[in-house]
């Protein structure tokens, strides 16, 4: 029984090979843009301020900013094994990535807060806008993670 999971090698039973980066990009795109279309749908269905407070859109915008920040630096830059120094070097890349991940987690937490604080606790008739905000941020967050860590930079060389 022990050692059951050790014999399972996930990276070896599927041969990602050269297609790995393409698959990661496609799934990241699917997640990210599905997230945005969910919130567009909610905004179309509930145009009134009482049903869907327009300031809740800020959450998704922050998540998108975080997505761009996370993916603007390469893993090699953070580890310090890239050829060029960049404008701020390794420390700058680390701080940039730190702020990016902080914004990403922050927007995910904020969307949960909106769902529960704005809709569930107040016992509104329509809970769907809150759920849409939550799913939008979750999809953008996981899209960012897939785009960042799903790709390998070995294929670039």
């Amino acid at each position: 029984m022990s050692g059951f999971f050790e014999s399972m090698r996930c990276s070896e039973c599927i041969d990602w090979g050269e297609k790995r980066n393409t698959i990661a990009s496609v799934s990241a795109g699917l997640l990210f843009f599905t997230g945005w279309w969910i919130i567009i749908d909610a905004a179309v269905k509930y145009p009134k301020m009482e049903d869907f407070n327009h300031s809740y859109h800020a959450c998704g915008v922050i998540a998108t900013t975080a997505f761009l920040m996370i993916n603007a630096v390469s893993n090699g830059q953070v580890r310090g094994d890239s050829y060029s120094e960049g404008c701020l070097g390794q420390t700058g890349a680390r701080i940039w990535l730190f702020i990016g991940f902080m914004l990403a987690f922050g927007s995910l937490i904020a969307s949960m807060w909106i769902l529960f604080g704005g809709y569930v606790i107040k016992e509104k008739q329509e809970v769907y806008p809150g759920i849409a905000v939550f799913f939008q941020n979750a999809f953008i967050f996981f899209g960012g993670l897939v785009f960042k860590f799903g790709r390998t930079e070995d294929l670039w060389q």
Binding site: E18, N21, T22, A24, S25, G29, F33, D41, W156
Partner: peptide, 22 residues
């Protein structure tokens, strides 16, 4: 075999396709 620019392009293309379905 791949590079960051092409992967960004694939990401954008996926976005356009998803938008066409959305």
């Amino acid at each position: 075999t791949s590079n960051a620019c092409k992967e960004l392009a694939i990401f954008m293309t996926t976005g356009i396709v998803v938008s066409a379905f959305g």
